[in-house]
Amino acid sequence: MNLTLKVWRQKDAKSPGRMVEYQAANIIPDMSFLEMLDVVNEGLIARGEEPIAFDSDCREGICGTCSLVINGIAHGGQRGTTACQLHMRHFQDGQTITIEPWRAKSFPVLKDLVTDRGAFDRIIQAGGFVSVNTGGTPDANALPVAKVDSDRAMDAAACIGCGACVAACKNASAMLFVSAKVSHLALLPQGKVERNQRVLNMVQQMDAEGFGNCTVTGSCEAVCPKEISLDFIARLNREYGKALLKGATGHKETV
């Protein structure tokens, strides 16, 4: 396959960026999208040009590092698939492909296709955990958890924190990401003790990071490589509403 790529190049966070055209020749349909970029980069290095910077690590769809907007769609539009698991057999010979970084104020571009998603870490730091120290925990089977709750919690916990939901959202909202963690922990008895405080803190941090609000268009769910359901946003709203009414009193962690 021979392809034309239009790729976002940006020297660093401060410099303006622009789309640059490259040819990707002799691409094999069994290559992953990132392997195709590897080939293009090898060509650039051979010519003494700087390769296109993009994030990737596990290349098996679980670490959440890769973050490309391909032809305008976060992760490229194959349902439930990260960019690293997208294969070239889904493209046509001669096609033009545009490749951009996540676009959101809260995810500033560091270079080319690499963005800073530290905002997600800071949201988790604000409350996305159960406050247990190591040691002294009861036997794992001391507290039965209904399979339906455990399975639902796992559905939410499957989020890989890639940020595609934010990149796809016209408001750059992080609600799907936040709702996944809030739901995961609120559904389990271990997370119930702190549920009010947790949701208030996480939402506060989400707002402080400058993410937009949710207008329920569902584009986040559509691009989510782990197919996290929009239902969790409804659950987040409910958790948040309840926490506002009940207040976090009595659930504050004592440090």
């Binding site: 247990v132 009861p138 794992a140 399975d151 919690a153 922990l185 271990q190 997370g191």
Partner: peptide, 12 residues
């Protein structure tokens, strides 16, 4: 025990 207390959703 530790992981369950943290909310790791092991299969049940």
């Amino acid at each position: 025990d530790q992981c369950v207390a943290q909310g790791v959703p092991f299969a049940r």
